[in-house]
Each structure stands twice: as C-alpha cells, then as structure tokens.
C-alpha cells in the first residue's frame, strides 16, 4: 500500500550537505505493522517526516518511488499533500504532553481535523470524536470533549493524539516513538490499544522506535536502520531468532537479560561510534565497528542479499549465492 524506493533526505548546510536518510526502500501492506528500529540519530524520525512531507525547510527529499495506494506523493502539490495528511495518512508523536494545543479543548481539536477533511459538520465531527475517544479507552468521553489538555495525564493525552490521528480513517498511521515518553505500564496499554485498533480498522502502521522490546510486541516486520540506511529487513520472529547483520546481532546482545545482571556481567556494547550523517560513506556504514569486517566492506556498498523468504540484509557476508552457509551463528 505504501511503496518507497530510494528515499533520501538531504539537508544543505554550510559545512556541506548532511544526509540523515540514504536510499531507503521498503513497502508496507494493508493491516501490517512495519517497525523501523535504530539508535538515536540513525534517521528514523527524518524518515517519518519525509513520508508525511513535513521535513524542515532546509531539508530536501528525493526518491525514485513514493506512493500511497497508487498516488505518487513525490510530485503532489503542497495543497494536495495537505489534503492527504490527516486524511489518508496520519501521524502520532513522541511527546503527548506538548502535542496538544493548551488553549483548545480536546473536543475542538478533534473536530478541527474532521472539519479540515470532511467539511464543517459539528454533529458528525462530534459523533466521530465521541466514538473514537471511547474506542481508545477513555472513560466518560462526553466530558472529555470539554476538557483542556492540562486536565489529562500523559497516557490519556497520547490516547487523544491517537484518536485525533484516526479521525478521518487514515489508511496509514505513522507512529514516531509514541510510547517513549510514557512509563512502562502505560506503554503496554498504548501498545495493545494500537494493536487492537489496527486489527479493527485494517490500518497499516509504520512504527518507529529504538526499543526492541516494543518491536517484539507490536511489529509484523522489522527494518533495522543504521546511519540512515536500512541494513536488515525481516519478519519480527526472524529478526529475533536469526539476526543476520552484525549490527542487528550487536543490538540484540545489548538487551539486558536478568540472568546476566545477576552474574554481574557488564552489559555488552557495540564499540566505536556511528559515522556522522555529514560523512560520505562509500562502503558499509557499519564497517568501522563490525567484528567481521572484510576488505570489501570499506570500498563498495554491500549488495542486498536474501537470507530467507522476506529476510533481506545488506552485508557482504551474504553477498554471494550460497554464502548463507558461512553465516556464523
């Protein structure tokens, strides 16, 4: 349903161009949750803003294909793009505390989205808002409509944000770390809420997170991003059971395991630093930190190889046919 090929974001700066997102290609099917996971600064949020057409002014987007349900988003005029935002694709953000306007009631902010895309019909907007507030699990939705954001807790505000995103029945929901600012119990509630809403409404969802625990709970498919590139894409179970890319494996090893802490072993960390997005990377971006680096890594971009059905990895270890056998596991 969403089809992206070679998506790049370039920010022109005084010290040369910065490329936080480099040649991303992926697609998301209806009803599917596609997780983009990666550490801070790997370009996750830039990717989501690029998809929505909400990049900061200095940033430019390029892609060979960027289509939502067959509509080419690349060439859309601003006005038409704005018609799609909030209508066919919607977004929820990391910070529920600041994502609602403090001077308007919940009800008027929800209705506003309806007015924007479905016309100024107060009764219809209010009915939809009520239904959604109830759906996202808020008690006494009618009273909530008259409340201001400061009267709600962070978890409730994030529920309102979800309701707001779903006002016009979007086909695609982009969730940019929607649970990061919430505490763990609320996080679990929001995740299961998103899951059930998705099943009910047939939403496609792009879920951006840095938390592999969240990934395991919500994702159907996962893309691991590193330094602006997707290094590995696979079904969720495959990523956890058979991680192929050395970076993915490193990430998974960094998850704290209770037993290990009891044995007073330090949490493993991937040595080295992420290359700066301003750098030009000829070969594999992870080469300088990889424990299985080859000569070829530094010079040429590793080819995309399939290790299993639907499991793609950009790594020279898997470059040649049959090399899967050499996969160190």
């Amino acid at each position: 349903m969403l089809d992206v090929a070679n998506l790049s974001v370039t920010i022109a700066g005084r010290g040369g161009a910065i490329r936080p997102v480099r040649d991303l290609s992926f697609s998301v099917a209806r009803g599917e949750t596609f997780c983009i996971v990666g550490e801070s600064g790997c370009g996750k949020s830039m990717t989501s803003l690029a998809l929505m057409g909400l990049l900061p002014r200095a940033a430019a987007r390029s892609a060979t294909r960027l289509a939502l349900d067959g509509t080419d988003l690349r060439s859309l005029p601003r006005r038409a793009m704005a018609d799609i935002r909030g209508n066919r694709m919607a977004m929820i953000f990391q910070e529920p505390m600041t994502s609602l306007n403090p001077v308007h009631t919940i009800g008027s902010q929800l209705r506003e989205v309806w007015y924007r895309h479905r016309g100024r019909n107060r009764a219809a907007g209010e009915a939809r808002a009520l239904w959604l507030l109830d759906r996202v699990g808020m008690s006494s939705p009618r009273e909530r409509l008259a409340q201001y954001p400061h009267e709600l807790s962070g978890g409730l505000r994030q529920r309102v944000m979800i309701a707001m995103a779903l006002m016009c029945e979007p086909a695609l929901l982009i969730a940019d770390e929607p649970t990061t600012a919430l505490d763990v119990t609320i996080q679990a509630q929001i995740l299961s809420l998103l899951r059930s809403l998705q099943d009910e409404l047939g939403l496609a969802m792009i879920f951006i997170t840095h938390d592999l625990g969240v990934v395991s709970r919500i994702a159907d498919r996962v893309a691991v991003m590193y330094a602006g590139r997707i290094v590995e894409t696979a079904a969720t179970a495959d990523i956890f059971r058979r991680p192929a890319h050395p970076y993915t494996r490193g990430l998974l090893e960094c998850i704290p395991v209770p037993g290990r802490i009891a044995r007073r072993q330090p949490l493993p960390a991937i040595p080295g630093q992420v290359p700066s997005p301003a750098q030009d990377i000829a070969g594999c971006a992870f080469a300088n930190r990889c424990d299985q680096v080859r000569d070829a890594c530094a010079t040429a971009r590793p080819p995309e190889a399939g290790v299993a059905a639907g499991h793609l990895v950009q790594c020279v270890l898997y470059g040649q046919a049959g090399s899967e056998l050499s996969c160190p596991s």
Partner: peptide, 24 residues
C-alpha cells in the same frame, strides 16, 4: 509539537496561525 501535529493533520499555514498560534 502541537504545531507539527496540526500540520500532520493537514492544516494550512493560515489555519495554523489563526487557530494554533494566535490564541497562544
């Protein structure tokens, strides 16, 4: 953030100025 959220909901700049920023 609420201005970005409003843009993500498809609001035009005029709407954002009038309804999101001006009341604040």
């Amino acid at each position: 953030d609420f201005v970005l959220a409003s843009r993500a909901a498809g609001s035009s700049w005029l709407r954002i100025l009038a309804s999101e920023i001006f009341p604040n």
